[in-house]
Simulated scan of single mutants.
Amino acid sequence: MFGDFNLASPYAAYARLRQGPPLVWDANFCGGAWLVHRHQDVQAALRHPDLSVRRVGGWVSQAGAPPSPRLQAFKGLMARTLVFLDRPRHTRVRRVVNAAFSPQALRDIDRSIENRVTHLHSAFTNQLRHGPADLVEQVCRPLPALVMIDLLGLQQLPLAVFQSWSEQLARFIGQATPDLPLLMDTQDALLDMADFLGNSAKLQEGGLAWRLLHDEQLSLQGRRERLAQSCMLLFAGYETSRHLLSSLFQTLLDDASKLQDLLLNPQKIPAAIKELLRYDSPIQYTARRLMQDQHWHGQHLRKGQLLLLLLGAANRDPEVFSHPDDLDFSRNNQAELSMGYGIHHCLGAGLVQLEAKLVLEQFLPLLPRLQLAQRERIQLPAYRGWNRLLVHYRAMPS
């Protein structure tokens, strides 16, 4: 089915899926998976107690890696991160990290994020005075990394190292079928990350990473489980945000009417962010494994098989969203699934949207003066976003 999947526009493939049955077996994608594309089915699968998020072992097996102590350490860390935990362990660990992303916690860091955006805006406009500037390189990539450095208390971690680690993990998780070289590079990145996060001398005392490592009152079990949550926050707090920011910039630079609408009606910014999350989800799919045989939509699904939950397709389901292929900033988007649903709803969803809001508030007045010169889309099937958005000032009419 996905043999002609187009990374530049997957929505044509989703539209073809909607013309057929609700479940489609694809023998090649992710090593074999059931494609789930209807909104009600994706939503149901996201909260189904008999579907598992544990899939690290499948990635390693597909890559054909020989056993080694480092590989075992890699698997142990990955498998203990919150995103790959099932209940009841997931409930216990999530309760620990939830507090860092509560509404009150976001209000507490609002000003520091705003200051970060102000500094990036100043540096970006200064670069524009001398020639073209890249919105991805100078805004979308550094901002979420700097925010997570502040949140976790990692001021000794160089920004470029943070980005290298996180983007290596993204290449691994975002690839349908990772190969051995990709697995080995990702193994090194995660273990280097854990080495840094396990060194108390490099952590801000009292910061989130320090507390996850040392606070005995937290219901975390063992050093690996503690380190795994810091690693997960470093990665997950970065990727979704940078892709959303780049898609927002690209959309508004390409659509003058939408840009003008937000300039005249800045109160629409939160709704515009939610709508873009629906319209062009930064995370296009997630996966679940069957814990037992099931019959669903007339198909026999076997224990251990993979369900690929197509968030991007569900977010354009015409049964839920009227005119789903239209970008409409006045739409009610309570049903969008970009950040997941149920117990695995994205922990940092509020932080991602706060970052986007603060960026738009400061950058919107600048955008009408900019013109896109070059663009390069990210080439990973699980993600939607841009690696490059080179802009320059528009030529002034003579």
Rank of each mutant, 00 (worst) to 15 (best):
F162K: 00
E239N: 09
Y341L: 05
L311Q: 07
D325S: 09
P158F: 15
Q43L: 02
Q40S: 12
G198E: 09
E361G: 06
L233C: 08
H300R: 15
P178E: 04
D293Q: 09
L35I: 07
L157W: 08
Y14M: 06
A65L: 10
M193Q: 07
S322V: 12
L311Y: 01
S52Y: 07
R47S: 14
H344K: 12
L71P: 07
N315G: 01
E361Y: 06
V36A: 01
D325H: 14
A335H: 10
L366Q: 09
D326L: 12
H297L: 04
D325L: 12
K303E: 11
V136H: 06
L77Q: 04
Q187R: 08
R116H: 13
D293H: 11
V24F: 03
S164L: 10
E319M: 09
A176T: 03
L245H: 05
L157M: 15
Q267S: 15
K258E: 05
Q43R: 11
D293T: 13
S338M: 04
I149L: 13
H344A: 06
A73E: 12
V359Y: 00
L327F: 08
A133Y: 04
L169K: 03
A133G: 06
G3K: 11
H37S: 13
A271I: 02
Q250N: 13
Q305T: 07
Q163M: 13
K274Q: 14
E167N: 15
H214E: 11
N199L: 06
H297G: 08
T118V: 11
Q374T: 06
S322A: 15
M184Q: 14
P158Y: 14
N315Y: 00
L264V: 07
Q353D: 01
L360A: 05
C140G: 04
S330G: 15
S338L: 03
L82N: 02
L245V: 09
L77N: 06
V36K: 02
D4W: 11
L183G: 01
Q267N: 15
A176W: 08
L308I: 07
R316A: 10
E239G: 02
Q229N: 10
V42F: 06
R316G: 02
M78H: 10
L264G: 12
G298P: 11
L307K: 03
D188E: 13
H345K: 14
A15N: 00
A313V: 04
R289Q: 14
Y285K: 00
